[in-house]
């Protein structure tokens, strides 16, 4: 009763085909999520108090003439029924037109192009750094007796509980103002990336390390680890070649979620370290009711979150091919 199809197809090609199918399905699902996000943001902004026309014409403090208000209302299509406005909005989105920022009077796509890179840089630097810390801390110390394990997991719990804003300020005080190793503010060059990346990475690393340590310790008890040792493999080779791959899975799942947490953390870090980035822009856009910019940023954040989760899902399948048999 074994599936006979296995006997005739090449396992490796089969794997890639399954991975491709999975990616297509997930991309379709991702498009749906983006549509839902666009719709929700659109209506949420409608519900906000205040007249968008006033925001366009310079905020609540300005005092435009009724004619100017009427002209702007027609220019931005705000005189049409909400349903028409919504469809128009979707149509423009499909064409890649996110509108013009009310506050900055620049196309939203241009603002995003200028600011998005910095945020992406920060997020991915933080994620990479977090994983580096996790691997350094856990692979070497897991299953090494109670004292080492206890100290390491204490360090993990401690760092997982540090808030970004506090850590950011402490890092600034010590390494920027005290030791003067890194610049306190700005967004040019690697040196300015180090402190904000650490501020984001340390709590995340503590979090991922906790689950990774637990699954490392479970995996080290598995019979196949003993088999690998009976082949004459060294302890480190056993840990990196066999154990790690099994133990990565829970941490990889967490990383998909972590992308979201990192972006919201980036908002805080960008303000503290006066960096460029969509986090800071979002913060300001919400305050000035700059609707096109809020929608644009929300969509980009949602899109990167969706994309990151698709990547994590595919990575997961690639690490553990057994998943394909269950889900494909």
């Amino acid at each position: 009763m074994k599936p006979t199809s296995l006997a005739v197809t090449d396992p490796r090609r089969e794997r890639w085909a399954a991975l491709g199918r999975r990616a297509a399905v997930r991309l379709g699902g991702g498009a749906l999520v983006l549509w839902a996000v666009a719709t929700l943001t659109f209506f949420a902004m409608r519900l906000m108090p205040g007249d968008p026309v006033l925001a366009i014409l310079g905020g609540p403090s300005s005092n435009p003439t009724p004619e100017a208000i009427e002209a702007a209302r027609i220019e931005y299509g705000l005189d049409k029924p909400v349903a028409v406005q919504y469809l128009l909005y979707l149509w423009r989105l499909l064409q890649g037109d996110l509108g013009v920022s009310y506050g900055q009077h620049l196309p939203v796509t241009r603002v995003l192009a200028e600011q998005g890179g910095a945020t992406l840089q920060l997020t991915f630097a933080a994620l990479l750094l977090a994983w580096l810390l996790v691997l350094l801390l856990t692979v070497v110390t897991a299953g090494r007796g109670r004292l080492v394990g206890g100290l390491a997991s204490l360090a993990e719990t401690f760092s997982a509980s540090l808030p970004h804003f506090w850590l950011g300020v402490v890092l600034l005080a010590v390494f920027a103002f005290g030791l003067r190793w890194f610049p306190p503010a700005g967004s040019d060059g690697l040196a300015s990336l180090v402190l904000p990346a650490f501020a984001l990475a340390i709590p995340l690393a503590g979090f991922i390390a906790q689950v990774t340590r637990e699954s490392l310790e479970l995996t080290l008890e598995q019979p196949f680890v003993l088999t690998a040792r009976t082949r004459g493999l060294s302890d480190l080779a056993v840990r990196f070649r066999h154990v790690l791959r099994h133990a990565l899975l829970p941490g990889v799942s967490l990383s998909g979620w972590a992308i979201g947490a990192l972006i919201s953390g980036a908002v805080v870090c960008e303000v503290i370290f006066s960096r460029k980035g969509v986090g800071r822009q979002l913060y300001q856009a919400v305050q000035t009711q700059d609707m096109p910019l809020v929608i644009g940023i929300s969509l980009v954040v949602a899109a990167s979150y969706v994309l990151a989760n698709i990547l994590v899902d595919l990575l997961y399948q690639w690490i553990d091919p057994r998943q394909q048999e269950v889900t494909a």
Partner: peptide
Amino acid sequence: WRAVRGKDIGFVLQDALVSLDPLR
């Protein structure tokens, strides 16, 4: 020991489903 294991002495455990790395 590592030079002996696998070369001079081979070791077989029970239940290959878990005694072989299930991901490889």
